[in-house]
Simulated scan of single mutants.
Amino acid sequence: MRRPFYTWLMTQRNLVAANEVQTFANGAFYDQQFPKQSSDFDEISRYLEENANYLHTVTTFDEAWSQYLASEM
């Protein structure tokens, strides 16, 4: 069973935020409504498009999702 995306994303946090995925992770950490238990691309993507003003581009989510999938293999 795959761990939730949020759990993986929190491993990417970096206070210095050297790249966009790390910046995304830092923003998601403070988002109380983030779907923390989800592993569903569509659910998370929809949420981010509608609610995540800290995510500057959807491409960052796509990159993070690819890294997430690779880490789960």
Results as ranks from 00 to 15, higher is better:
72 E>W: 04
3 R>E: 14
60 T>K: 03
59 T>C: 00
55 L>N: 06
54 Y>A: 04
26 N>H: 02
39 S>M: 09
28 A>L: 08
23 T>F: 07
2 R>G: 05
46 R>D: 07
59 T>D: 00
54 Y>S: 04
69 L>G: 03
40 D>P: 07
16 V>T: 11
48 L>G: 08
49 E>I: 11
8 W>A: 11
38 S>G: 05
47 Y>Q: 02
31 D>Y: 01
8 W>R: 10
12 Q>A: 12
57 T>E: 12
32 Q>V: 14
4 P>E: 08
59 T>A: 01
9 L>S: 04
71 S>E: 14
45 S>T: 04
19 N>G: 04
69 L>I: 15
2 R>M: 11
73 M>S: 04
50 E>L: 15
27 G>N: 00
36 K>D: 07
2 R>S: 11
12 Q>W: 08
6 Y>E: 04
65 W>R: 03
27 G>A: 08
54 Y>G: 03
63 E>K: 15
8 W>D: 10
41 F>L: 03
7 T>F: 06
4 P>A: 12
3 R>Y: 09
4 P>H: 06
47 Y>N: 04
12 Q>P: 00
42 D>Q: 13
48 L>T: 10
50 E>H: 13
5 F>Y: 11
64 A>R: 09
50 E>G: 12
43 E>L: 11
15 L>N: 11
48 L>R: 09
20 E>S: 14
70 A>V: 13
45 S>I: 02
5 F>Q: 03
69 L>K: 12
61 F>R: 00
11 T>N: 08
39 S>A: 14
21 V>Q: 03
21 V>D: 02
64 A>E: 06
10 M>T: 06
16 V>R: 10
1 M>A: 15
34 F>Y: 05
34 F>M: 01
25 A>Q: 02
17 A>G: 00
